[in-house]
Simulated assay, not measured.
Amino acid sequence: MKGQENGAYPGPARPTFTPAVVPDFGTYSHEQLLAMVEHADEHKIGAIGLRLQEAAQTIGEVGQGLKEHMVRLEWDGEGARAFQAWGADMSNATLHRAWRRADVTDARRTGPARSR
């Protein structure tokens, strides 16, 4: 954990986040891919896609707001540095999630995700 390596963070370690495993769809045959979606309701899928886009936008706004708030904090000392490091990590992770969600949603229309 950031900050614990030199004893700067005396509290208990926080659990780490483990992202979900995403299948490598490139290894599936066309028949397997077709079987996954052949009975799907395109209207429901479209509605879910729109909700995901809205969620990505909101998550991005939260991440940006957190990032902007962290820079305006007037706080000094070891606790401030630890909190600012945590805030930077949290806002960056939040923005990364929003970008990834937007990339996945965009890929439906435009092709593979952009690299960031």
Rank of each mutant, 00 (worst) to 15 (best):
K2A: 12
G3I: 12
Q4Y: 07
Q4L: 03
E5M: 06
N6W: 08
G7A: 11
Y9D: 13
P10F: 03
P10V: 09
G11N: 05
G11L: 10
P12F: 01
A13W: 03
R14H: 07
R14Q: 11
R14D: 02
P15C: 02
T16C: 10
T16G: 14
T16I: 14
P19G: 11
P19R: 14
A20C: 02
A20P: 04
V22G: 04
P23A: 13
P23F: 05
D24H: 03
G26M: 07
T27E: 03
H30P: 09
E31L: 08
L33P: 02
L34F: 14
L34E: 10
A35M: 01
M36Q: 10
E38Y: 10
A40M: 08
A40K: 08
D41T: 03
I45R: 03
I45P: 01
I45F: 07
A47V: 03
G49A: 10
G49F: 04
L50T: 13
L50M: 12
R51V: 05
R51A: 15
L52T: 01
L52M: 13
L52Y: 06
Q53S: 14
E54Y: 05
A55L: 15
A55K: 06
A56R: 00
A56K: 00
Q57N: 05
I59T: 09
I59F: 02
I59A: 02
I59P: 01
I59D: 00
E61R: 01
E61W: 01
V62C: 04
V62D: 09
Q64L: 13
G65L: 10
G65Q: 11
G65P: 07
G65A: 14
L66M: 15
L66H: 10
K67E: 12
K67W: 02
E68S: 15
E68V: 05
E68Y: 08
E68P: 04
E68K: 06
R72V: 11
L73A: 12
L73K: 13
L73S: 11
E74D: 14
D76Q: 14
G77Y: 11
R81H: 15
A82V: 14
A82W: 09
F83D: 11
F83I: 04
Q84I: 11
W86V: 02
G87Q: 01
G87T: 00
D89Y: 11
S91P: 02
N92I: 12
N92C: 10
T94P: 00
T94V: 07
T94E: 00
T94F: 01
L95D: 00
L95V: 06
R97C: 04
R97L: 08
R97K: 01
A98L: 00
A98P: 00
A98R: 00
W99M: 02
W99G: 01
R100D: 07
R101Q: 09
R101D: 04
A102F: 01
A102G: 02
A102M: 05
A102S: 04
D103T: 00
D103Y: 02
V104G: 06
V104F: 08
T105C: 08
A107V: 07
R108D: 01
R108W: 04
R109Q: 08
R109F: 12
T110W: 09
G111A: 04
P112C: 12
A113Y: 06
A113H: 07
R114H: 07
R116K: 12
